[in-house]
Structures are given as C-alpha cells and as structure tokens.
Simulated assay, not measured.
Amino acid sequence: MDTRADEILTRNQWDEELSRDEIFDLISNSRRRYTIQYCKEAGGTVSLSELAEHVAALEHDKGISEITSGERKAVYTSLQQTHLPRLDRAGVVEFEDGSVELTERIERLDIYLDIVPEGSIPWGVYYLGLSVLSTVILAALWLDFIPAGLAPELLYPTIIVAIFLFSSIYHTYLNQRYRIDEFDRSL
C-alpha cells in the first residue's frame, strides 16, 4: 500500500520536521483529514469505534444514527489497518489499544490544512498591490500631485492603515473559513 511513504515516516523521525511532500501525502486522504478534524473537535482521546462512526458519517454525509454497520465497519477497518498506524508513525496521533489522541505535532500541519478558493488571487499578490498603491499615494502627496491642503494632514495615511487593517481582518476570517476540514464538510 503506502510502504515507501511508511518507510519515510518512522518513529525515529519524531524530533525531525516532516517534509512538505510527506505532509501533503499524509493529508491527501480524506479519512486522515476527517480523523484529524474529529480529534481536534473532540479535544482529547477518542475511541476507534467513536472515530469510525464520525468519519463514516462525514464520508457519507449522514448523521451517525443513519450510517449502516457496513459503512461503519469499512471505515473502522481502514482506520485501524492503514490510516491510524500511518498517522501514528508520523507522530501526528498516538494510536494504542483502540484509542486515538492528537499529539503536539499536529500544529505543524495546520498551515497545510488551509486552502485557497478557486478564482481568488494569492494574498501575497494582494498585499503587494496594496503596498504599491499606498506607495504611489504617499509619493503623490510628497510631490504635491495630490493637494494635501484640502484634507486633514493624517487623512491619507489613516485611510491606508484602515485598508490594511480591514484586509488583514478579512484575510484572517477567510483563512478560518477555507480550511480543508471546513471545506470537506461543505462538500
């Protein structure tokens, strides 16, 4: 199955950073993402059977009471034999005796769980454009292309700072909204 990746992600690498490729490989599977998502929501140790129910419900877009025993069993087996051992070897969860708990290492994956919606511009490009626009406005003020006497002295810098502030607030809001775990739930 994932033998090459499993060799890379051994317990001996606990103190080492996972490479980006290893992280992307770990979160490339929806069952592993659902596992991480549910464990974060639970905030502590969860049982494998509880986890399997929730992952099956997310996968099939059903309530827990609506999933069949076959759906639950398929997810349970897959988590037990493949996904949880894989996450455990990567040091992201501790999986032992039918219980699952996230480790502190999960924080290293958080940045990779963000997604960028289709059709949007990267935030780095947006802030670069905003910075260039601000520089042009300030240069125009310094060179008297924009008459400063018509407005209070701090009006233009205040507008620029306000635009950056509101952009940052909106950016933070979108980062929370467009995380992979939230995106998966909306599909």
Score class of each variant (00 low, 15 high):
Glu101Val: 05
Pro152Ser: 13
Pro147Asn: 14
Ser69Asn: 14
Phe145Arg: 11
Ile36Val: 10
Thr82Gln: 09
Arg177Trp: 10
Pro147Val: 10
His171Ser: 09
Lys73Thr: 15
Gly124Leu: 08
Tyr112Lys: 03
Leu58Arg: 09
Thr77Glu: 15
Gln80Tyr: 12
Ile169Arg: 07
Thr77Met: 14
Thr35Ile: 07
Leu18Phe: 15
His171Ile: 04
Ala90Ser: 06
Gly70Ala: 15
Tyr126Thr: 03
Glu17Val: 10
Ile36Ala: 02
Pro157Arg: 07
Ser19Ile: 14
Ile8Ala: 13
Ala56Ser: 02
Ala90Cys: 11
Ile36Ser: 01
Ser78Phe: 14
Thr45His: 05
Thr68Gly: 12
Ile8Val: 08
Thr82Cys: 06
Met1Gly: 03
Leu143Glu: 12
Ile27Val: 10
Ser78Lys: 10
Tyr126Ser: 00
Leu84Glu: 00
Ile137His: 01
Ser168Val: 09
Ala151Lys: 14
Leu113Tyr: 02
Ala162Thr: 09
Thr158Lys: 06
Leu133Met: 11
Ile27Lys: 08
Pro157Ile: 09
Phe95Lys: 05
Ile121Lys: 10
Tyr34Leu: 12
Gly119Ile: 02
Lys40Phe: 07
Val132Lys: 03
Glu182Cys: 03
His60Ser: 04
Trp142Glu: 10
Ser30Asp: 11
Leu150Gly: 12
Asn175Thr: 13
Ala42Asp: 01
Val136Asp: 08
Ile27His: 09
Arg179Leu: 02
Asp88Val: 11
Glu22Cys: 14
Thr10Glu: 14
Asn29Thr: 02
Gly44Ile: 05
Trp14Leu: 10
Ile169Ser: 06
Trp142Arg: 11
Ala162His: 03
Leu84Arg: 00
Leu141Asn: 12
Leu48Glu: 13
Asn175Ser: 12
Ile160Trp: 01
Leu133Lys: 06
Tyr126Arg: 04
Tyr38His: 11
Leu154Tyr: 11
Leu165Ser: 08
Ile106Asn: 00
Arg32Trp: 01
Asp21Glu: 10
Asn29Cys: 03
Gly63Tyr: 07
Ala52Ser: 15
Ala90Gly: 05
Lys62Phe: 03
His60Trp: 00
Leu109Pro: 06
Tyr173His: 10
Met1Phe: 05
Ile115Asn: 07
Leu48Gln: 14
Glu41Lys: 11
Leu138Lys: 04
Cys39Ser: 13
Ala139Pro: 01
Gly98Pro: 12
Ile36Glu: 03
Ser167Gln: 08
Arg72Gln: 14
Tyr170Ser: 09
Ala162Lys: 07
Gln13Phe: 15
Ala56Thr: 00
Thr103Leu: 13
Glu107Leu: 13
Trp123Gly: 00
Leu58Ser: 04
Thr77Gln: 15
Ser168Gly: 14
Leu155Cys: 13
Val93Pro: 00
Tyr173Gln: 07
Leu79Trp: 00
Ala5Pro: 00
Tyr112Glu: 04
Leu87Asp: 03
Ala139Gln: 04
Val93Glu: 01
Leu113Arg: 03
Leu138Cys: 07
Ala90Tyr: 00
